[in-house]
Each structure stands twice: as C-alpha cells, then as structure tokens.
Amino acid sequence: MAIHLTKESKVLVQGMTGGEGMKHTRRMLAAGTDVVGGVNPRKAGRRVDFDVPQSLNGLGGAPSSVPVFGSVAEGMDATGADVTVVFVPPAFAKYAVVEAADAGIGLAVVITEGIPVHDSVAFLDHARRRSTRVIGPNCPGLITPGQSNAGIIPADIAKPGPVGLVSKSGTLTYQLMYELRDTGFSTCVGIGGDPVVGTTHIDCLAAFQDDPDTELIVLIGEIGGDAEERAAAYIRDHVTKPVVGYIAGFTAPEGRTMGHAGAIVSGSSGTARAKQEALEAAGVRVGATPTETARQVLAVLDV
C-alpha cells in the first residue's frame, strides 16, 4: 500500500531536460519509478535516453527512453500519468504547478527551492481548488522503497518496511532512514521547510494511520510555525499507531532564520521546546538525537 505513491504511480517530470531534472530522473528510474514522460513545450516530440544503473536494491538496470510532451495534459492523455515531479526553476514554478493542476493531475511534487512565497500561496490555492495534492515546495519529495521514488531522496539508503516517516528536512530524513535501514519504510515524505507547504504533517499522519503497511510513524519537525503543535493535537485525537518524534533547533536563537526559510523562532512561539512538550503531552516519544530517535523506534517495534 504505502501512502501517496506506489509502484502503480505513473510519473511525469516537469523540467526533466534541465540539469537537475536529468540527474534525478535517472535516479528515479534506477529506483524503479515508472517515469512515463518529461514535459517541456520547446522539446515536445523528442525522447531522452537514460542509461539507468542497477540500484543496490536490485531495481533499475535497463536503459530507458522517456518521451517529452509539450504539456502536462498531453502527457497525461498519452500515458495516464497521475503524479508530476516539478524541477522547474523558481521564476516559472508557479506556472508549472498551475498547469499540472489545470490538467487534473492527482499529485504534484515540487522540488524547486527558492520559489517566492506569493507564488507558492497562489499555486497552492489553485491546486486546492482543483483537488491536486501538492507536496513541497522546497522538498526532497517522497519515496516508497522498492516501489517508486518521486523526487530526490536517495533510494539506496533503506529497504521496504513498517515505518512511515514525515519530515520538514531532507538531510534529517536521510539520516533517520539510514539509522533505520535494516527496519525499512512504508513511505518517507519530505514535506519541505518553506513557510507555506501543500502537504502537512497532519495530512501524512492521517494517511499513515489508514495505511495497513505502516505500523509506526516517525515525525521529524523543526523550529518555526506551529505545525508540530497542531500535529500533536491531531495525534492525540486521531492516531492510534505509535508515533516517535524528533525536533531540531533547540539551540536556535530567537529571530534568526536557520537555513530553511520557515525555520525561525518568533517570540516564544515556534520553539523546539514547545513542540517537544506538545508532542510528549500527546503520548509521542521524542528522541534527543536522531540516533536516539531511531533506538526509540526499534524499542517500540520490539526488534
């Protein structure tokens, strides 16, 4: 099962013919993703050949020739695509997502970093009205190990397994995946560190709660906003599966942005301490370090 992405997912890549798009399309193919097309109006009708390496988990290995379509709608008509991964540069990302939502795609994974917030607000609103789920922007995407990878999460880190993971941070996701590589994951979702994002911790908690493949949920948060506090309230009321949490940013000074545009403590709100307390009050075990968090997961799973 997994959430939002399975081996049945047919994936388009907007911005596939750019540098990042090429590099990560090759990696996605190697991870077993069914990449059915790229989108670029100036290169429509061509095909791009990928020499796909065999990945460590035995997927990929066969060369692949991917067609380029002039629009998302065209690509969907021709292939039945239901997911798009967006690598389009910041200045044009808004138009890419609006186009995908207008075409009626189910899921848009926006990897692009540095999109103006007014653009994100506009395309998220547009997508919401058309029932397109957006993951990101400024996120590493999501992976269902052994099945499909939509984005830039390294696919070789971890195998399939019972842990569902949702995180604001890319590298912390990789770190936790690595710590729990022998246990494995149903799906890992990087929701992104921007101030506004399309899919929240709560959306993923709800999906993991309903996913029979997920036995335990790992929630990684960081300073800024109140998404973790809201997630804690949601867990208390709606999640019966065990949740293990990790929060980054206890040592962050007030009023300074720590790398991610959304990672800022304003006054007493958005602090790591407040988030940890909210999660613990909802019965979530919160690890002191990523490694300790992984140990808590193993203890709960009793492996």
Binding site: S167, K168, S169, G170, T171, L172, T173, Y174, Q175, G193, I220, E222, I223, Y246, A248, G249, F250, T251, A252, M258, G259, H260, A263, A272, A288, T289, P290
Partner: peptide
Amino acid sequence: NGAGLVMSTLDVVAGCGARPANF
C-alpha cells in the same frame, strides 16, 4: 550539509555539554 541536519548537530553538541559557536 542540510539545514535540518545542521540544526540537529547544534542540539546534539549542546546535549554533550558544549555550546555550538555557529550554524
């Protein structure tokens, strides 16, 4: 490398009884 991992690194160093000098 990576904002989340660096923030986490500061916290882990602080947990070891020293103070991080920077992000």
